[in-house]
Design a protein around this nucleic acid. Structure first.
Lengths: 133, 133
DNA sequence: ACAACACTTAACATGATAGTTAACTATAGC
DNA sequence: GCTATAGTTAACTATCATGTTAAGTGTTGT
């Protein structure tokens, strides 16, 4: 009965990260980095059934990580050019953001333990907790 | 096997990407990028129960994205400095790998369809679009 | 035409996720 | 000591994910 709020924001990232959260799918992506491949070729390294691979491919396709094409009875998968961009962007952005945070924190701690602060330096870098209203 | 990428423990990436495959958890991470926060502070933007948040935090902790500490009855979460590194590495590495592939393919197709190659035709370095379409 | 091939779809078992409410632990403050 | 506060754990439910086998679709080759 609970009303689930429809998740619209970041659904793309849900699919992207979700698709990459599986070792088999990451393996497929790595394999495809060497060039397009058919389903059986992609399945070869794994000990799981072909339908399972087929579904992994569907997941990757839904996440826009790969595209698929058919020639004759062979269906090949190939990496989509822009696919990982948004995930990579999110990650690197946040990684950089808090790397900076930690740099500043390190810096701050260094100053704290090194003696009296100098004049030009700000003291506002403590990880202050936001007060709850 | 190709294995272009140094195999780290796939388990680690499973946990990392899996943790990021949820909008609430990404939201928490974004919130924590502004500084450490308590559980109720982190829960505030969401309409889900506190136990649900508590479990999201556990997932993030298991993925080594955050660490947690306790002072008094408040438990705060803070981002772990190195956490996203391996995920970001994997992504950017692969993105670059196949971006290059597509660049070369573009290049190749351009030459094929353009007739006799001209002087500086091969200098297109940038894929047409980057980022989220 | 028909058999082998390359998949996909269907139906199902099972385990993981994500949410709930209720009860519990532990600290803060009077 | 008592009570409110901060958060976790427990028990349960619903949905999603991943795998299986069996059957179906369409193509290739004799």
């Amino acid at each position: 009965m609970l009303s689930v709020v429809p998740k619209r924001t970041g659904e793309e990232l849900d699919l992207l990260f979700g698709a990459l959260a599986d070792a088999t799918r990451r393996g497929i992506v790595e394999q495809l980095a060497a060039g397009e491949a058919t389903v059986t070729e992609l399945a070869a390294p794994y000990s799981i059934s072909l339908p399972a691979i087929s579904r992994h491919l569907k997941v990757l396709e839904r996440a826009s990580i790969i595209t698929r094409s058919q020639q004759g009875r062979w269906r090949s998968a190939q990496l989509s050019p822009t696919s990982l961009a948004s995930a990579a962007t999110w990650l690197t952005l946040h990684e950089r953001l808090w790397a900076e945070r930690f740099d500043r924190l390190d810096d701050h701690l260094a100053r704290l333990t090194a003696g009296p602060p100098t004049l030009t330096e700000t003291e506002s870098q403590t990880p202050a907790k936001r007060g709850t209203p």
